[in-house]
Design a protein around this nucleic acid. Sequence first.
DNA 1: GTGATTGTTCGATCGTCATCGTACTACGAT
DNA 2: ATCGTAGTACGATGACGATCGAACAATCAC
Lengths: 104, 104
Amino acid sequence: MATSKSLPQPDREEIRVEAVLQALGEPVRLQIVRALAAAPEGIACGELELPVTASTRAHHLRTLREAGVTSTQTEGTKRISKLRREDLESLYPGLLNGVLAAPR
Amino acid sequence: MATSKSLPQPDREEIRVEAVLQALGEPVRLQIVRALAAAPEGIACGELELPVTASTRAHHLRTLREAGVTSTQTEGTKRISKLRREDLESLYPGLLNGVLAAPR
DNA sequence: GTGATTGTTCGATCGTCATCGTACTACGAT
DNA sequence: ATCGTAGTACGATGACGATCGAACAATCAC
């Protein structure tokens, strides 16, 4: 049986804009967010191509999740992360689109 | 005669989204940005009510200016800072409004 | 079971940054 | 010129965070 569990994350009303902006302001994390934005079905940690080691990758994914930017579900040994687009759009309408509109 | 000079700042195309997000992610700076958003005519450094000393205030204003978030003009001994709304809206449409929509 | 895969957690290191006080500059008023 | 005001620049400190390697945990395949 494929057990699937959600990792802890802040509720929508607990999300703080400073934490979101700080999370998005780190280059590696912004790169992750761009990849997640291009993959609505979510991405497993290991599938992200990043210039850092696996432990640093885990650290950034945790930061994004705890800031309320992403949600993570375990699928077997994989952990699928997705953007919390609805929550972010509801809290800060236009913010995410504006960030994603930035030239790379 | 009232001499008026603009302090150096990045051109629109030099603005990096990481720097903008990082600048906005600091609580004191976000407070400054909120105050500037409420005062389209600009605010002098000393008129900002912040829980930090003058030197820290100057540091944050410099960070915002160098990130491309604000512009600063000298008016006598005062330095008037304004939000670069047009540039930010052009680069990251919706971002600033989204941030300002956040509950305090 | 063993082993391989996937990912996290822990501890350490190193750099960056927010903060402060002090000294300094620039301008205006007297 | 002297004084007061507005703000910056510098140097130091302390805290936070990005990074890594190594050890650990959980699941799947065999």
